[in-house]
């Protein structure tokens, strides 16, 4: 496998009337061809902004990509002109969002919207593109697909609309699909349908995928790698096993501890992380989790306040592992028992 996407030191800010919002503060990650990366974190942690930035979709003003590189197949996407970027979006990288209505045009039929991109990117004529559009709707499990091409978005249920979005995303065989909370607005039974569908299509199309969610459970079963974000930074990253079963970052540990589990009777009190997520209008000097971190308090780590911990291999990592985190502390050996 080779690297498909290489993001380095991405910094994004918004200059608003209420002050500067430090949305993404130095994010770096790689994605292999065909790999699925799960980006998890609470709302406001910078998940959407970092993915919008690499697609060239940050509204400017007020937003600005301050620095960083996004290498995709040998080109830095951040240096491309808007019309070059438009060709990449939709064709090489597709994106689906939580609310399909934000990306669907309510006054155009579904058929028109899918065929448009097929004509633009694949140079198909009307009848070719209609046939392909119907095939795609069929593939994503929309019954009676050919007839439904002439329906408008509002004639579909929430789950069906998300299927339409997936069909549109897949229409040009992208190398990368970015899904930003695609199931958050859906009921759990419909979410399960969509996850099954995406799993199956991912293999069929051999796409790489970034799945963004605040629901840690959703990515546990689908992602090869997990990246935990907080305060516009990556806290921990590794394989699904490493992050969920050998968590090393105090924030990851705290977050997992605060979640009740479906598969165990909930006798124990939930551990809670005190305080609230950071106000992104303050530029974080050190670790963004410092104000809420019990490990910092227990170990009396003063540098957490004013020195940013680098994103590095976790202590004593196995050879070849990509398990990394951004934390000054080593929580093994008696630390967790005491906080």
């Amino acid at each position: 496998m080779s690297t498909l996407l290489d993001v380095k030191d991405l910094v994004v800010r918004f200059y608003t009337q209420e002050g500067t919002v430090y949305a993404v503060n130095g994010v770096s990650f790689e994605l292999e061809e065909g790999e699925t990366l799960g980006i998890v974190g609470e709302s406001g942690s910078g998940k959407s902004v970092s993915s919008l930035a690499l697609m060239g979709l940050i509204p400017s003003p007020p937003g600005k990509v301050e620095s960083g590189t996004v290498m995709f197949e040998g080109r830095d996407l951040l240096t491309l002109k808007p019309d070059q970027m438009r060709l990449i979006r939709g064709k090489e990288i597709a994106m689906i969002f939580q609310d399909p209505m934000t990306s669907l045009n309510p006054v155009l039929t579904i058929g028109t919207q899918i065929t448009e991109s097929l004509k633009l990117h694949e140079g198909m004529n009307t009848s070719q593109s209609r046939k392909r559009a119907a095939d795609l709707l069929d593939l994503v499990g929309i019954p009676d697909a050919y007839r439904r091409l002439d329906d408008y978005p509002h004639q579909f249920s929430g789950g069906m609309r998300q299927r339409v979005m997936i069909a549109m995303g897949l229409s040009c065989n992208p190398k990368l699909l970015i899904a930003d909370e695609p199931t958050t607005a859906l009921d759990v039974t419909i979410q399960a349908q969509i996850i099954e569908l995406v799993k199956q299509l991912k293999d069929e199309f051999n796409m790489a995928m970034i799945w963004i969610t605040h629901d840690l459970g959703v990515v546990a079963g689908i992602a090869d790698r997990i990246q935990v974000m907080y305060g516009g930074r990556i806290m921990e990253s590794g394989t699904s096993h490493e992050v969920f079963r050998d968590s090393r970052h105090p924030y990851t540990v705290g977050l997992l501890g605060s979640l009740p589990r479906l598969d165990s009777s909930g006798e124990e009190k939930l551990t809670q992380i005190e305080g609230s997520p950071p106000d992104m209008r303050n530029e974080p000097a050190g670790c963004p989790f410092a104000p809420r971190c019990d490990v910092r308090e227990y170990l009396q780590l003063e540098k957490c306040w004013d020195q940013r911990p680098p994103l590095e291999s976790v202590p004593d990592v196995d050879g070849g592992s990509m398990h990394i985190m951004s934390c000054w502390a080593d929580i093994r050996e008696g630390v967790l028992e005491n906080v």
Partner: peptide, 26 residues
């Protein structure tokens, strides 16, 4: 179906889970 659809934040558990996928909407 409802319970089988709830994802659990543990890849080991998720690997062996049998989902009952019910089709359609309410």
């Amino acid at each position: 179906a409802l319970l089988s659809a709830v994802p659990v934040p543990d890849p080991v558990v998720e690997e062996d889970r049998q989902r009952i996928i019910i089709s359609g909407d309410l």
